[in-house]
């Protein structure tokens, strides 16, 4: 009995000794690309699926406000990085019932459809530019459904404490031409969610700022329930609030087809 114990302890001791030897491999800085990939995972892929009631307040520089209220359904598919999104608008009444459906792919452009209830029209729409504004807000489609870590190169700049939280500060530069030259993100070291992001244009001017206003633990997933994106050039900002969040509700890929685009699944859609 003693002998068998010793057999297991010996390799452990050996490992401990190894760990005490200073070496680059062991004390290397965390890999920036891995931190970003993990952060995107925590931000956009928590749970197998999700439902949320989203309220966006679009506020211009003069303080004039518009409002978009929608239900969002999201699920991950088996495909690497693949997701399905279903966004059903309840307000304002002029766009009530309008629905977006997105099949998000890692390897190629997304498939995107819109349903216009007034004429019962389902139309496939071009999804080439993920950086166009989502329903006139300061969030782009990419901000809503997440970007791909491999589309940018990432550099860890430093660690920094903001609002009492320790963060990694990472600079990311798109590999292809985008609406920003580079962005900086402050990623919380404990749960991996971005607390702040700043987007810079080619002249190095800060153009957009994202702030996670509120982060809550929802069913074991740390979730950004309040977020703001501000356009510094126009002074326009969008505040988004995620309520009634539920994870792992059992969505299937069938929910993200033309059938449900035409006829919303009432179990999840108000």
């Amino acid at each position: 009995m003693h002998l068998s114990r010793l057999k297991t302890v010996r390799p452990l001791l050996f490992l401990l000794v190894l760990n005490c030897v200073p070496g680059e491999a062991i004390f290397a800085e965390p890999d920036a690309a891995k931190l970003v990939a993990d952060s995107l995972q925590a931000f956009y892929h928590a749970g197998k699926d999700m439902r949320a009631q989203v309220t966006m307040r679009l506020i211009n520089a003069q303080g004039k406000e518009r409002k978009r209220v929608m239900t969002m359904l999201r699920m991950d598919t088996g495909e690497r990085g693949g997701q399905r999104y279903y966004i059903h608008f309840q307000n304002p009444s002029d766009i009530r019932g309008t629905t977006f459906m997105v099949w998000k792919h890692l390897e190629r452009e997304d498939d995107r459809w819109i349903f216009i209830p007034a004429i019962k029209l389902v139309r496939r729409i071009a999804a080439d530019d993920k950086r166009s504004s989502f329903v006139g807000s300061d969030f782009t489609y990419e901000d809503v459904s997440g970007r791909v870590a491999d589309d940018e190169t990432h550099t860890l700049l430093r660690t920094e404490e903001i609002a009492g939280r320790v963060t990694y500060v990472i600079e990311s530069e798109p590999k292809e031409r985008a609406d920003y030259k580079h962005r900086k993100s402050w990623i919380d070291q404990s749960h991996g969610l971005p607390l702040r992001e700043e987007f810079f244009d080619a002249r190095g001017e800060k153009v957009r700022v994202f702030v996670a206003d509120q982060i809550e633990l929802v069913e074991q997933h740390w979730t950004i329930t309040g977020r703001t994106m501000k356009n510094l050039q126009t002074g326009h900002r969008t505040q988004a609030r995620f309520d009634e969040i539920k994870y792992d509700i059992g969505l299937t890929e069938e929910m993200f087809t033309e059938r449900y685009l035409r006829n919303p699944p009432r179990k999840w859609i108000r």
Binding site: A126, D129, R131
Partner: peptide
């Protein structure tokens, strides 16, 4: 055939 020409142009 339809496509985007810019972020707000189709």
């Amino acid at each position: 055939y339809s496509r985007q020409l810019g972020s707000e142009t189709q």
